[in-house]
């Protein structure tokens, strides 16, 4: 059988291409027909050249390393380009149909044909599963990368004044996130030599005892390094939860707003913010 298929390589490719192009789900918006042809030809070559009567029952045979590698590459790139799983799966399933069609055209005994079709089906099904697995892995990688990106962007450290850093926290604070928040903040404290850090939690949806514990840890670590940490942005409902849950935050300085925290920071650095003399004069003139 392998021999037959080998002789008909170009026919298989043509038939497969025809099937793919005729498919109503063809995504010519995502991949050009030319690129599709290149991909298809490579795969047919790799499969047919390495296929023999011994390895047809074993999709994991090292003979198929090239096929596996090609399929993996195609799946991952398709996952990234935004193909649906069905579209990606169809790519290899239409190849199966083409192969079976070619086999059917060969004059042979029905039983033999059945046996051969079954073997070929099994092999191609295994490759389909592999395609799905790789496709999902490709998607997972995208998700992982996005998670990392979100963690990175969602914890910016802002230098609001010489010696004062602010860190607005947006979103739920779990222990992994606290770790990142803490590391970023402490690193920035060292870099800038800031003695006051403001953690603003206006963007944190809820504070339970675990979140409070995380906040306390961040404050303790900042203090160990020799800087002070103020928690700001405590909304009234959060103040209520904290008290109802019996969480003790009396060891840390808390302020309702970022402005309040900034004011406190200025005071402890012995800085004053004043309306400029000119403006004061302007106001009196108006009166």
């Amino acid at each position: 059988m392998a021999h037959t298929l080998n002789n008909k390589k170009s026919e298989i490719l043509e038939l497969w291409m025809k099937n793919q192009l005729a498919d109503s789900g063809l995504r010519d918006d995502l991949i050009s027909n030319k690129d599709l042809r290149v991909q298809s030809e490579e795969l047919v070559n790799a499969l047919i050249t390495n296929l023999n009567d011994n390895n047809i029952n074993n999709s994991e045979s090292p003979d198929f390393d090239k096929v596996t590698e090609l399929l993996g590459g195609i799946s991952i790139s398709r996952a990234r380009q935004g193909f649906s799983p069905r579209e990606t799966g169809n790519f290899i399933l239409t190849l199966k149909e083409a192969l079976l069609e070619i086999l059917r055209q060969e004059p042979s005994d029905v039983n033999v044909l059945f046996e051969e079709s079954l073997k070929l089906s099994r092999l191609l099904d295994n490759f389909t599963i592999l395609t799905f697995e790789t496709f999902i892995k490709g998607r997972e990688e995208v998700i992982l990368r996005q998670t990392d990106e979100i963690t990175d962007i969602s914890t910016p450290v802002i230098k609001v004044w010489d010696g004062i850093l602010a860190m607005p926290i947006i979103g739920t604070l779990d222990s992994a996130r606290t770790q990142v928040v803490m590391e970023n903040l402490l690193q920035k404290i060292v870099e800038t030599g800031s003695s006051i850090a403001i953690l603003d939690i206006s963007g944190v949806p809820a504070v339970d005892s675990l979140v409070a514990q995380h906040l306390l840890k961040a404050v303790s670590a900042t203090r160990l390094m020799g800087a002070d940490c103020i928690i700001s942005g405590i909304r009234p409902e959060i103040a209520q939860t904290i008290v109802h849950l019996g969480i003790d935050l009396s060891q840390i300085i808390t302020k309702a707003s970022l402005a309040g925290a900034l004011q406190y920071a200025f005071k402890s650095l012995r800085l004053e913010v004043k309306r400029s003399a000119l403006e004061v004069k302007g106001i009196t003139n108006l009166q």
């Binding site: 670590a221 160990l224 390094m225």
Partner: peptide, 13 residues
């Protein structure tokens, strides 16, 4: 005590 490294501070906490 001055100059504690961030990683050390986190670990101590």
């Amino acid at each position: 005590v001055v100059g504690m490294q961030p990683a050390v501070a986190i670990t101590l906490v």
